[in-house]
Simulated scan of single mutants.
Amino acid sequence: MLEKEKAIEKLNEKEIKVYQYILAHSLEFPFMTIRELADKVQVSTTVILNYVKKMGYKSFKEFKLAYRLQERKSRESKRIYDDKQVIGALIQLDNEYYQEKLHLAKVMIGNHNNLIFTGVGNSGLIGAYGARIFSSAGKYANVINDPFMRINASMEDTVIIALSISGKTPELLRIVESCKTFGACIISITANMKSPLALMSDISIPYFLKIDNIDQIDLTSQILAVAIIERLARND
């Protein structure tokens, strides 16, 4: 049984009233003083303090702070996926800025015999998809998604398509830097046009989505990266 549930089991009748009031008034509670809460529940401030201690906190102030942080975390974890932002970013791919970027990238890819995708984590999986799409379209491609792979051969006839939402992943930057050192041309697809990855690229194709992190887990949509790859693979 969870610690919170164990603590609730130990509450007396008056303390349960405090618990129920806070649940029912979660928006107002963080801004209330201990006296205001006591008046609303019609108990003494001593009852409030006893409740706070049974819940594992030393003071009413500490309890309110923890409550605010927990509420904020809960709201963030329940954020609704913003498909309108993704759709808007997809529509932008038809504008002149992207048409020029895509054209330059296609020319670069066409002028080289070798095409390699690279990325770490989810971006590595998108890279594997990109290699498959290009191979199916008639341009054989491969993928490097091992962040520890060493590059020690000439890559003068190679284009690297590097995928990263943040453009800051150290393992990816190391791979891209090694490939560039050995003569490869770099095309980056990233949500951060000012990132180290974008700046070290010969051609950077940014997409404009808000980076969505929850508890250090990146949940940013990869739809834009996929759409850009699919457009690059087309011969039109």
Results as ranks from 00 to 15, higher is better:
residue 4 K to Y: 09
residue 5 E to S: 11
residue 5 E to H: 13
residue 8 I to Y: 08
residue 9 E to G: 03
residue 9 E to M: 08
residue 13 E to S: 10
residue 14 K to G: 04
residue 15 E to Q: 10
residue 16 I to K: 15
residue 19 Y to G: 02
residue 20 Q to R: 09
residue 24 A to P: 05
residue 31 F to R: 12
residue 35 R to L: 14
residue 37 L to I: 09
residue 50 N to R: 12
residue 51 Y to C: 03
residue 54 K to G: 01
residue 61 K to Q: 12
residue 62 E to D: 11
residue 64 K to F: 04
residue 67 Y to A: 03
residue 72 R to Q: 15
residue 82 D to F: 00
residue 88 G to H: 12
residue 89 A to R: 10
residue 91 I to H: 10
residue 92 Q to N: 15
residue 107 V to Q: 11
residue 108 M to T: 09
residue 115 L to E: 03
residue 119 G to W: 02
residue 121 G to P: 00
residue 125 L to Y: 15
residue 130 G to A: 08
residue 131 A to I: 05
residue 132 R to C: 14
residue 136 S to Y: 12
residue 139 K to P: 05
residue 140 Y to F: 14
residue 141 A to Y: 08
residue 145 N to H: 13
residue 145 N to G: 00
residue 147 P to C: 05
residue 159 V to W: 05
residue 159 V to S: 06
residue 160 I to L: 11
residue 161 I to R: 05
residue 161 I to Y: 07
residue 170 P to R: 15
residue 177 E to H: 15
residue 178 S to Q: 15
residue 179 C to I: 07
residue 184 A to Y: 01
residue 186 I to C: 02
residue 189 I to D: 02
residue 189 I to Y: 08
residue 190 T to W: 05
residue 192 N to G: 07
residue 194 K to W: 03
residue 197 L to Y: 01
residue 207 Y to E: 04
residue 212 D to T: 11
residue 225 A to G: 13
residue 227 A to G: 00
residue 227 A to P: 05
residue 235 N to T: 10
